[in-house]
Amino acid sequence: MKVQIASNVFLRDKYLLLEFCAPAGFAMPEPGQFLHMRIEDSFDPLLRRPLSIHDAVWQAHSKNGRKKHVVRILYEVVGKGTALLAEKRPLTQIDVLGPLGRGFDLKKIGRSRCVYIVAGGMGVAPLFFLARRLREGRKENARGPKIVVFIGARNKDHIIREKEFKDLGCEIHVATEDGSKGFKGRVTDLLKTILPPATDGAVSADGQEGAPVICACGPKAMLAAVAALAQQRGLAAQVSLEEFMGCGLGACLGCVIRTVSGYRRICHDGPVFDAEEIIWGD
């Protein structure tokens, strides 16, 4: 389906925020889902590019006050496709498939007292939408889970959306590899110091009422470290994975990750998986 770009602006350096108003028939997205975007009408680039839903909100129209469904995509220019997307001006039509994939398991997450959100680099993209849903999904007066966000990046220039998470009422911890902001080192090393220690005997917190959960998105090595840490502390973790995609619809088997039940499709069975399902280091 075609969507019309409302705005597409640089936040800084190589990071952009694209916004469109969901057309009729556009399904309400779930956190962790993505859009498969055809960036050019030509065949260069040939394949679509998967980009997560960064945010989706109902907003009153500035003129008529009518509610509109605004969808946002946060992306980094890394190659041909994203560079071309960065050039798109408002009113440009762009063809998208989606929302696609299986997002975070909100039922499981919503039951916990505390959600640890761990974002490495562009991992903030889907996790912000998750935080918003957890904040806004709760009933009036219901406390909802506490949200503790960890953002990790190379240096302070790559830390994005910190303020937006704060505005949602999340507790924020920042780690940079060069120490230019917050904790110096990897975000998982920071996480280690703040996560509660393993409770005696609790091997898996799954099903344990109110037990904290970890939700993570970022480079695979980071997710593997998060998964190991979660297991060590007896916590459940949901991780959002990436791979090159062809169809985006589960048909081509191009985007797989090795799991305990064989190779599974990131586009269709994921992109969010229970961390303990994944066989890391393949």
Partner: peptide, 17 residues
């Protein structure tokens, strides 16, 4: 089971799988 990933990549005007 199939091959280990990555299984696809784009090339100019085409794709490898």
């Amino acid at each position: 089971e199939g091959n280990r990933p990555p299984r696809i990549c784009e090339t100019t005007g085409g794709m490898l799988n």
